[in-house]
Design a protein around this nucleic acid. Sequence first.
RNA 1: GGCUCCUUGGUCAAGCGGUUAAGACUCCGCCCUCUCACGGCGGCUACAGGAGUUCGAAUCUCCUAGGAGUCACCA
Length: 474
Amino acid sequence: MKVRTRFAPSPTGFMHIGNLRTALYAYLYAKHNGGDFILRIEDTDRERFVEGAIDVIYSTLKKSGIEHDEGPDKDGGVGPYVQSERKDLYKKYAEELVARGGAYYCFCDKERLAGLTDDKGVRKYDKHCLHLSKEEVAAKLAAGVPYVIRQNIPEEGMTEYEDMVYGTIRVPCADMEDEVLLKSDGMPTYNFANVVDDHLMKISHVIRGNEYLSSTPKYNLMYDAFGWERPRYMHLPPIMKDAQRKLSKRYGDANFEDFIAKGYLPEAIVNYIALLGWAPKSNQEKMTLNELIELFDESGVNKSPSVFDEVKMKWLNGLYIKEMPEEEFLREATPWFEKSAAKGYDYALLAKLLQGRIEIFGEIPEKVSFIEEYGPVNPELYFHKKLKTDAVVAKELLPYAVDVLKNAPFDNASLFDAFGAMCEEKGIKKGQLLFVLRAAITAVASTPGGATEMAVLFGREETLRRLDEAIKQL
RNA sequence: GGCUCCUUGGUCAAGCGGUUAAGACUCCGCCCUCUCACGGCGGCUACAGGAGUUCGAAUCUCCUAGGAGUCACCA
């Protein structure tokens, strides 16, 4: 049987990391097994529908490299792929299930239902309407009494299934309620739509968050009642913000777009989240999407929740940045330069200096802020323990730099060599001179390049001006 | 509360009856070095607790504790 997995988000806003990971795993599993990955939009709850949310789903998937084989925009013959467009279907199947004894009409109103709630605030429907005769049901239907269709779950016995990551899940039927399958507005509940759609779309493996772990037995009972083959299930542990709280869009800090805006690379995000809850046998950490496809398998999936660690994702992103081709880095960095203190400077030079020094593009502005914030040089900046320099040394050495800066060809290699020659001639320690020079012309403790590189960045004139100012201050 | 599930360093995570309990991030040293970073080397820190089973348990069983999920005409 061909492997077919699906990602079935509801369009309620941004795509957060947990959702993306679910999509990723479903995609990886399908591709690893030469199968298809289907996108289905679950919008049966129109109250929560958010305008534009579907576009966010498309764009996130696209940027992540997760390409669906079928979906609303790619018909594979089992559509439509949007639940609200399948409305009529569900009713028909609900009725079929009633005919098969797996479900029944229920006319109970809210008041009666409320009366069923026990002292703990927990309610279990009492199958009241299950015992209505055919005639009674027909009469109420004819009279237009509002109704729902409920699943008819056996009152006793056990039901079990084999989860691909959690193993055997066994639940007593008595603990499950006869859930509503078809709402009074004619729309299916998620529970029902899911089962019908997954079957009709020939989904072989249902991969989703483990909040469904304990309701899955109910779904299985539906498959059984329909006489359909049950799919395989892979439930995934949640991604946490910390030990107690699940990562959710409520915290606003965990959606894909936010990370992109901070200067993360999509492939790094995907790589990182693949690692939350799964590890390859080799324990390799940096993997391309294709490598992930090749290595992904359910035996590497964890059962316990994992905490999202942005620090580590940053590190991974840094790895991706370091191995970008220079031109690509420059292209990606340019928009960041444009809105920073580096605006108007030599972007190619800055890119070269910065590529090995940042982990996300968002760090660029702070790294180059020294360019325009030049002011009085704090004497302490001349202090360096190992180089044995301080303001006194700076006052002595700085003047030696003036001639070189005035006369040497103004490129990094030439300047560096010229300073080397001069230092040797005068018996000065090059490291000391260059250190105090860098401090003098940048006025900050650390910069993305050494003295000569900073000088080239500023240009001869500006460098001399700054040096002059710094010397006067001493 | 019932049901289902989870528990290896601060975090991610190997491990599936015999290991000095990997590796990665973070942090701290050292080296490299025109500052910072990169890189290299090294270090700190873990099997939730208790009973079993076994010659032997992080690995199997049970109990306890802690945590999560679920119990909607939401998905």
